[in-house]
């Protein structure tokens, strides 16, 4: 019994210590003056692998989610004779919730795990150490561009996701199910507020982008440099990112859309 309590306490301390380490890690990564001449090409390369390479999965998922929303929404709304409100429903769902959240979940699975594995492998093959021995700070050279890339790519991906989703929803409801196109758009435009819905969605995805890439690079940097360590770090990245995104989504939604 005493043992169990002691091990519980130890686990708690471990969690707190690792939180502290990740905070120090973040400060070390972001501290210092950015050097555009060195940093920009590195950032662009990371934007390519984190952002552009995630486009395919984002577009395909966005399309399908929009189409499903169109189908489901039509079935429910047509019971009340208000199919015209489907545009509003699709747009608000995507902009406020599904766009940022699903993008973040897909990002964690696609780009986050890749980041963790890549950095973990660099650690295991002593590339980070050797960089340090060459007088180059790996936090700024390797980690910082990846962190920023995730941070920048996420809102862009979420916006693209929402647009594709709305288009997919329109495809189903207007083209296939025969909702009048004019009322589809008019309803949407009268209910969607640019600042309240679009910008708040973007803010959400910026927060998610930051958290997801932070978790991903930290897990990679902090992993045990063996193949087992890397694989468990990759799993942790996906699990922690997903939990953090869903939890934060609740908090952000309460702050942004809750009436208090």
């Amino acid at each position: 019994m005493i043992d169990r309590i002691a091990s519980l306490g130890r686990t708690g301390l471990d969690v707190i210590a690792s939180l502290g380490r990740s905070g120090r890690f973040l400060v070390g990564t972001l501290a210092g003056v950015p050097q555009p001449r060195v940093g920009l090409p590195l950032l662009i390369r990371q934007l390519y692998s984190v952002g552009v390479l995630s486009l395919a999965i984002i577009i395909v998922s966005g399309l399908f989610i929009g189409m499903v929303l169109g189908l489901q929404g039509f079935t429910i709304l047509s019971d009340y004779g208000s199919e015209a409100a489907i545009g509003q429903m699709i747009a608000l769902t995507l902009l406020r919730e599904l766009g940022p959240v699903v993008t973040a979940l897909l990002f964690a699975g696609r780009a986050g795990s890749a980041l963790t594995a890549e950095i973990g492998l660099m650690k295991a093959t002593e590339q980070l150490s050797s960089m340090e021995m060459m007088g180059v700070d790996p936090l700024r050279r390797v980690i910082a561009p990846r962190l920023w890339a995730g941070f920048i790519a996420m809102p862009i991906l979420a916006l693209i996701f929402s647009v594709v989703g709305i288009w997919g929803g329109m495809l189903v409801s207007v083209e296939w199910l025969g909702v009048f196109e004019g009322s589809f758009w008019a309803n949407m435009q009268s209910s969607v507020e640019f600042v309240d819905d679009v910008i708040n969605g973007v803010i959400k995805s910026i927060v998610f982008g930051f958290v997801c890439s932070w978790i991903a690079v930290y897990q990679g940097y902090d992993c045990i440099p063996t193949s087992a360590g890397i694989s468990s770090a990759t799993t942790k990245t996906v699990v922690y990112s997903s939990l953090a995104v869903l939890g934060l989504d609740f908090v952000l939604t309460a702050v942004m859309f809750g009436n208090f």
Partner: peptide, 29 residues
């Protein structure tokens, strides 16, 4: 490097375009 730069540039433009679509077409701003 050049190709990567161009593709990433297109990616960012796509993001801005998406924001524009959401602003004008969806929220009727």
């Amino acid at each position: 490097q050049r190709t990567t730069e161009i593709i990433v540039g297109l990616f960012i433009i796509a993001g801005c375009a998406a924001l524009l679509v959401l602003a004008l077409q969806v929220s009727g701003l």
